[in-house]
Nucleic acid binder design. Structure first.
Lengths: 338, 338
DNA sequence: ATGAAAGCGCTAACAC
DNA sequence: GTGTTAGCGCTTTCAT
């Protein structure tokens, strides 16, 4: 245990309050007094005990961020942006994994480390709106990610349907007609990918193209392996799309890898579009065309929303905020040959 | 503010201590009493205030992890492993960025969020041993990463010289003779890459090859852009190595990208070896040969070390622990043609 | 087996 | 301008 206010006060021969005043830069302290106290502080190597301060103030300065896993660069990049955004408001980030599992997501939403976190930013995968109904924890909650929840919490997400349509439109605009979707979930009960899938359907329909369900490939997860497996499965059952729209960049990268392995060229034989704009895609041997959500904005807005509620606007009406996105065309897409 | 022990005690008509006993599963409570208290707890939706508990116990259950940035998949994957390892010991992870800057690293080492974290795992880049000398914070500190510190703290790192030599030996074994090193730092003052660079030198010498300093390319950072820039710089000044050993996978991936852009084929024209074994390298179009440090072990050991000191062995003698590593040969390296 | 009371380190009200 | 004191919610002796 380090020194406490009391120790410093004793050494300096003043009251606790005076030391507290110095520590907190209370303006009305005489310079001489300040110097004397400061000397005692330095001598003892005093550091304020934040835990005690928090108990007193009811605030900890800690925001929790729960993402499926940091192994996915999208979440790693997002987490990094949240850490930086939080730091700008003098908040620190407590990090947790949910593995995208509903139970873990519920647990976190219900009061992860209750009272030690001031607010919670959660990026759910399988969570249902109903799971949020009985939430008692009074720490502000902000939801991130693709899904839309009919629940009274702030939600920060780009317009996934419209973004997916933009991606597909990019492909149809290049003359592609058989456009596969990679990354639907195997079980139909929960369909986290449904908005992007809907975008795919809507845009194909708008372009007067058929929505061929045999061109929809399910995956078990959201990683590179899953993308490769889905691409292989599609090709194995005899489909030969001339373009692929993947649920995310990792799946797209896995798909490109599978295509290359089978001697198919990207983009000449099959064009590929991803979603997320992770840095990896910019530098892959065939740079990946992708939908780029404004991650900085997402992180900033999420943190600001938590901080605003904490700073005296606790009953702000919950909002659904849609940050911007752009389509970044790179090497993995090109005009359909012939 | 939620309900407190007092509220529950009042509602149940018992003393605070009894409620506390129930909450903490103290064995000597009559079942009837336990049930009565539990009912009150449920009714009020009581959650223990961990901040208060922490103040009392002097422990928070939080370990801080400070890495340069999560944008680098190596650190993201490592951070993920630390979060999981910590969870196994019922600890949560507070995350911070240092940007690899010395000042930020010093700040963190000196007592980042003093008293709210029980221990600290720091992966420094520019920190010097001298910066650690005056450390007063009594939270256990574990150092990660390439550098070795002459300081009384646990250090978990693979044997970088030997690992680098293994990588270079892989290349010489394939018949390569002009082997470049990518990723030395521009300023000579602090040379975070020096161990891997030394491994490069030692192994070349052992193989009877010259250590041609014109084949050492400096970078400004550790990202893909830096790798591409360094590779281009090397080629621009007329060097044509037949193999490249990069400080890390990101630099290697940037280099591969630059090589491909200039019409050079990997591995036929130039073989490439990285360091870190990030998942990205496994799935790049040309799968990357790399040194694979045991990240799970690093994370596990770091957390165990912190937890051990916290759990009553505070004065364990500081150790330098070297987890294992392997060389993973993939497509980016092949026998030198001809 | 249960209760009463002290105190962890701090801040905020109020007194002087 | 500085000191006194109560109390944040909890755990922990010490009684009973």
């Amino acid at each position: 245990m380090g020194a406490s206010l009391k120790d410093v006060a004793q050494l300096a021969g003043v009251s606790i309050k005076t030391v507290s005043n110095v520590v907190n830069n209370y303006p009305h302290v005489t310079p001489g007094m300040r110097a004397k106290v400061q000397r005692a502080i330095d001598e003892l190597g005093y550091r304020p005990n934040l835990t005690a301060r928090h108990l007193r103030k009811g605030r900890t300065g800690i925001i929790a961020l729960a993402v499926p896993e940091l192994g996915n660069p999208y979440f790693a990049e997002l987490a990094g942006a949240v850490v930086d955004a939080a730091a700008r408001h003098d908040y620190t980030v407590l990090l947790d994994h949910t593995a995208g599992e509903r139970q873990k997501e519920i647990l976190v939403s219900q009061g992860f480390r209750a009272h030690v976190i001031d607010g919670l930013i959660l990026s759910p995968i399988e969570l249902e709106a109903a799971d949020l109904l009985g939430r008692t924890d009074d720490a502000p909650l902000v939801l991130l990610g693709e899904r839309e929840y009919d629940a009274p919490y702030d939600q920060i997400a780009i317009d996934n349907v419209s973004a997916a349509r933009t991606a597909v439109r990019h492909l149809t605009g290049l003359g592609h007609r058989r456009i596969a979707f990679l990354g639907a979930r195997r079980e139909s009960a929960r369909q986290p990918a449904h908005l992007r899938l809907r975008g795919w359907r809507e845009e194909l329909t708008a372009a007067g193209l058929p929505c061929d369900d045999s061109l929809v490939a399910a995956t078990d997860g959201y990683g590179r392996v899953d993308g490769a497996a889905a691409m292989n499965a599609l090709l194995d059952r005899g489909e030969r799309p001339d373009a692929v729209f993947a649920y995310n960049d990792l799946i797209a990268i896995g798909a490109m890898r599978a295509l290359t392995d089978r001697g198919l060229r990207v983009p000449d034989d099959v064009a590929v579009v991803g979603f997320d704009d992770i840095e990896e895609g910019r530098f892959s041997t065939i740079a990946l065309t992708t939908v780029s959500p404004d991650k900085q904005a997402i992180a900033r807005l999420a943190v600001e929303r938590v901080v605003a509620r904490l700073a005296g606007a606790p009953h702000l009406v919950p909002e659904r905020i849609q940050p911007g996105y752009t389509l970044v065309a790179r090497e993995s897409t090109a005009r359909r040959p012939g």
